[in-house]
Write a protein that binds this DNA or RNA. Structure first.
Lengths: 339, 339
DNA sequence: AACGATATCGGTAACGTTTCCGGTAATAGA
DNA sequence: TCTATTACCGGAAACGTTACCGATATCGTT
């Protein structure tokens, strides 16, 4: 199978490969007539540049995308938005999914070497101690859905919702309805990360009313329906007086609602449930899920702009907080057993 | 940032680049001592081969993966299984997501040129008239979740569940419970594709009992919750006597259940619903969804084996039908309004 | 002792593209 | 008319890796 190369195009167009390359890269210094002729020949032969050869030159601006979890619909929609939004801006994207326990620094480093990547976006990453190793990458990176300010990495920007405010909003919503015994299902919070911030905000709402959140109402739980189910099953078997649940992910909330049903408790009549992220599914569950909707498009747009600024203009890292939106639906009600 | 290349390793190990390459590719003709030394140096410098340079050589066996729809959980889990299963077998995977309306031949052709791909797996593809263009690819391809036998492409294998049998099984299940007015939400069926087969099987079940399926009960519907919702909303507003629904995708079923609820009809008391695919979510919805579970791991394993056989041994295309499993849960019951 | 077989290794030419440097021709300015 | 500038283009060297071919050394055979 003969594949057509830039050399073939050059021969057919009676120009040098250099000129074809110039046309391909929209360089200004080529005669309009020549350009047109070359473009026609490219079109006729449906020539597509070989990405391997391009990538071999150290100059190409390939950017990497690391996504934690292929099955997470929220992260998937975010990744999709990023790719859409960068389609016209960057040369090429190489994306890689990693699982929950994978080390993102290791992955990033390997990708950098394997593909000569010049910038990286992390979708749904964790900020923990190991993240400081990102220093070693020496390429600009952007973290999404997590505020990396606290990590103070010199080559890392971040775009995230204002988790603390949103946590507070959820707390206020539930407290103002009269709930007092509220469970929180978070996951593995590290000082300064998104989850910790949401939780802090949630506690702020308590403090506003002179209340304090008691730790016995908190459960650690991975971000899956399965885990949400298991956590709720365990928790509500032992805490029958709890009237509300704040799940820090929609998947967890959906698993929990199912577990509550199996325990003979209805949502929202017996227990109110609030999720986080705002995945499509929330609009179709029974009951429809109250949740905090993350502005996926905005996060995507700002992330790629941030990365491009850093890559092309050498801009300094920035940490952007965007606004989220509390969406009220059918999974929250006042507790009918008043204290 | 200085990246270490095979040349650096060769220099540090006092061998030629050729020898390092041999070590990298596990060639037999290298002295064990030398091999060990080189491997040590590679390890010490955490050297990773440049994929671009590898891909530039026409010999590397890169395989492509085309997935229709990033947000489809079933296809995502299938893609994940394929990647897992091929991780050790192939040199490198390049995956690309396409949307509903994209032409898979165009995409495949571009990928082939752009990345010098030697084999391709389609995850969740459509078999329509255009697919014959895959001929032009001249590389072995495997279609998953669709039986490509009818298309009789000389370079294409396929792995799919026995759609016709499963369609029949669903039909039997519902008919034997006493349902007679059953809606079917499929999508855009082309002669010989998966959906058409499921539908044919469903009609078989009718025929077995001397009944015939009437076309007024059929609705076309894209594979999303949104579309399932809209279709159900329209359909059940006009067909209040229908007591069951066979949705050819779990997402459609879930959207439909929500629509039924909004119409004041409960599942399964008023309407029974059966889905297709067996995504995780089915176990957590209210009610839990009856569905046909596709054997994701088996489809994945057989697909990569098929492709590898074709790529390496030049094996002839084969079309494999695997067994699916009807999972009975809470969304199906006997109709309480008997005819 | 001469020979062939085998194990182990190195030099070099590709792969397809971009970039650097330089060259020619046309045009403008003096 | 001469020079300087500009527009446009081409040759050749890289990028990192692998494949091909050939070279040497060792060892067993006759």
């Amino acid at each position: 199978m003969k594949v057509v190369t830039i050399k073939d195009i050059a021969r057919l167009a009676n120009v040098s490969v250099t000129t074809v390359s110039r046309v391909l890269n929209h360089r200004p210094d080529v005669n309009p007539e020549t350009r047109e002729k070359v473009e026609r020949i490219i079109e006729e032969n449906s020539f597509v540049g070989n990405q391997n050869a391009r990538g071999l030159k150290q100059t190409s601006e390939v950017v990497g995308l690391i996504i934690r979890g292929r099955s997470n619909p929220f992260l998937n929609s975010l990744a999709e938005a990023i790719l859409d939004c960068a389609a016209s801006l960057s040369d090429f994207f190489v994306t890689e999914y990693i699982d929950e326990k994978a080390d993102e620094f290791e992955t990033a480093l390997r990708m950098t070497k394997q593909h000569r990547i010049k910038g990286m976006i992390f979708v749904g990453s964790l900020i923990d101690d190991r993240v400081h190793a990102i220093h070693g990458l020496e390429i600009p990176v952007v973290f999404t859905t997590v505020n990396a300010m606290a990590a103070s990495l010199k080559n890392a920007s971040s775009v995230a919702v204002d988790d603390r405010s949103m946590g507070r909003l959820v707390g206020e919503e539930l407290l103002s309805l009269g709930h007092r015994k509220i469970a929180v299902f978070g996951s593995n919070p590290v000082a300064g990360d998104s989850l910790a911030m949401r939780f802090l905000g949630f506690c702020d709402a308590y403090a506003d009313r002179g209340l304090t959140f008691e730790h016995q109402y908190y459960r650690e739980c991975r971000f899956s329906m399965e885990a949400g189910y298991a956590a709720a099953r365990e928790y509500f078997s032992n805490h029958s007086d709890t009237t509300a649940l704040f799940a820090m992910s929609d998947a967890v909330a959906i698993g929990a609602i199912r577990a509550l049903k199996d325990l003979g408790r209805n949502v929202p009549e017996d227990v109110s449930v609030v999720g986080f992220d705002g995945i499509d599914l929330c609009r179709f569950t029974i009951p429809r899920l109250n949740t905090v909707e993350q502005p996926v498009e905005e996060i995507a747009r700002r992330s790629v702009n941030l990365l491009l600024d850093m890559m092309e203009k050498g801009a300094a890292p920035r940490h952007i907080l965007v606004n989220a939106f509390y969406r009220s639906r059918d999974s929250v009600a006042a507790p009918h057993i008043l204290p």
